[in-house]
Design a protein around this nucleic acid. Structure first.
Lengths: 201, 201, 201, 201
DNA sequence: TATGAATGAGACTTCATTCAT
DNA sequence: CATGAATGAAGTCTCATTCAT
């Protein structure tokens, strides 16, 4: 086997290990307040020693960020996939998909909230985050444009994005409700929001 | 002086101490990320020992909650005040007031986000929180009803509440923007949201 | 009891606790390579929890420094005490005292070595250290002057100080020798050094 | 090729690898506080994996020791070279060479300090160290004898060796001074020491 | 009732060393 | 023989909370 192949294999193995850690972290974050997840817990979940985590991520914050980025990418792909599906993606459908995804990826929404709430972002992190968020926003703007809404499309995209985030933030943890009830309520609210945004003038 | 009076005085004294702590905490929370405020900092701000805090609040979380409740009450009063002012409160005006308040009370919005994001709420806390949130929602519903919007008013109130929270969550900490820029942008988005919600059919 | 007295008592109590920690640390440092002494060990020695150490010292380095400073002060006092004793302090006697002290306070000499060897000193630490070392050097220079040695007295003081430190550094840990043997050898070398320095021209 | 030759070749290869590691370590130690050099750093410098280091050295301490031994040998050779140069090596010249070498090999002086300060020496290490130090001391004693100093030559050699080490220990890291200033000051002090030691009676 | 010193669990992180490949 | 991923013990330090005074 050539050295190049060996190296490629290693790289792949490394990538898949990293993925494994990422997945375990995502799962853990989903199960409890993600701020309280410890390195040891993650290590235990991946069946690996704490030190190993640091072979793949410089710090816990780094891992946090990657979990978040992974979510944002997923989401963007999901939306773009829908837009490229024959008849395009109606605003209503977008709202459904977006809130649906957040319901199934609570940790993503938690982290979004965390960073939005003031979780310090290093300049490097901000630099990595910006293009990802811009891409997501571009997708949303595309949908807004296709829906031929009134107003400045970028601004409307921001407002729509905000409103849907707000639906989740406000009701995703409503005390005393089951996940299924929450899912139903947030989707219903998403539909209400969609209704107001796409209403003909 | 009767024992009852003495007791009443004591109660009052106690209440005012509690208030003092509350105020100091609110101020501190407003100054920095509220999750990083320590008991000692609060104690120092009130010029009291850490132990004393625990005579008035069972735990730090308890104090957090109270700060949050105080904000929610403020907000409700603010809105009701506006509604009772002669010509009532338009939906547009409400959006402005709501987002304006959150801009000036970042700690309130932070805590709201915190609890919504999964900050565990004990059953007792939930029990205390519920009527307060219900009252706030009642006020919002009143505004929705007065605006004669289509749809189930409670649901629309939820959607509106969500959308405005979302505006803050999504843009209140936009990296690289000044507080004034954020204020402007969030108010603008609030207006966009208001525009979609109150649009005639 | 007045508040002032109470406060004074507290201050005193605090000071004595700090002293206790200092002493325990000095003892521990003397017993083993001082770099390997941990916070937990010190805490155990003082019969206190690790956290408590941090009530008295900002960091372990801080404690290290204080142990060192305490030694330097002790030493300076010891020398000055001797100089003020009637007939003054001969150079020979000084060498004996200096090396004697270092023999009985191995941790002091270890820390001196540590800092001299490159243990980073923060600017603040340097600022605290400088006057203390200057005072020690002043004392030594006084002895040199009284001994009417040839040459620039400050430079000669430096050379003498260096030579005695070197005696300790070079022989205080000679493998396979008992403390008593080391003591004897270093004192003998100190006498040799004294002999060369005070020799009449 | 005979098996014996093959074996010899292997041995040679092994020896040169060991040398390579040694050199890289010396270089690294010279660049920064040697106690902070990690196995991984050394491995990276030699372009070898960390595990490989352990095929050549039992432990990091072992490598430290070898670096130190290499320095001591260098130094001995340097001195002997000077002594065998026609007119021999005056005590003054020796002091200059010794302190000069230490200035240019800070890591050597650091390690000397480290071991002298209590860096545990295993019995085996001590056994390896002893003849090397003895040889160095023999050289110094030779110089002392040639300078026709008074006193027991071995003892005087010890005192001289100590004094020069002390000059370095005491001033090689003087905070706020440049390497050149340190070099000048230590050489000056070495000259002062030489002056006292070689003074005619 | 107020104090504040003490607690101690637990967080992140580093790094010499091992061992399967 | 070389690799380098994995280990896991150990380190420093923080902070909500308790409790003797």
């Amino acid at each position: 086997m050539s050295a190049a192949t060996l190296h490629a294999l290693r790289e792949k193995e490394r990538e898949s290990r990293r993925e494994l850690i990422l997945l375990a972290a995502r799962k853990l974050f989903a199960e409890k307040d993600f701020r309280s997840v410890t390195v040891r817990e993650i290590a235990r979940a991946v069946q690996v020693s704490p030190g190993t985590i640091y072979r793949y991520y410089e710090s816990l914050d780094d891992l946090f960020l990657d979990v978040f980025f992974a979510g944002a990418l997923d989401l963007t792909e999901l939306i773009d996939g829908e837009r490229n599906k024959g008849e395009g993606c109606s605003l209503r459908r977008f709202c459904e998909i977006y809130v649906g995804y957040l319901n199934e990826n609570m940790s993503f929404y938690q982290m979004m909230g965390h960073f939005m709430l003031g979780g310090r972002l290093s300049p490097e992190a901000t630099e990595r985050l910006n293009p990802i968020m811009r891409e997501l926003m571009d997708s949303i703007e595309g949908i807004v444009r296709e829906a031929a809404l009134e107003g400045e499309t970028r601004l409307v995209a921001h407002a729509l994005f905000s409103a849907l985030n707000g639906v989740m933030i406000s009701y995703a943890r409503y005390p005393g409700r089951s996940l299924e009830e929450i899912r139903r309520h947030t989707l219903r609210l998403a539909a209400v929001v969609a209704g107001f945004f796409e209403r003909e003038t």
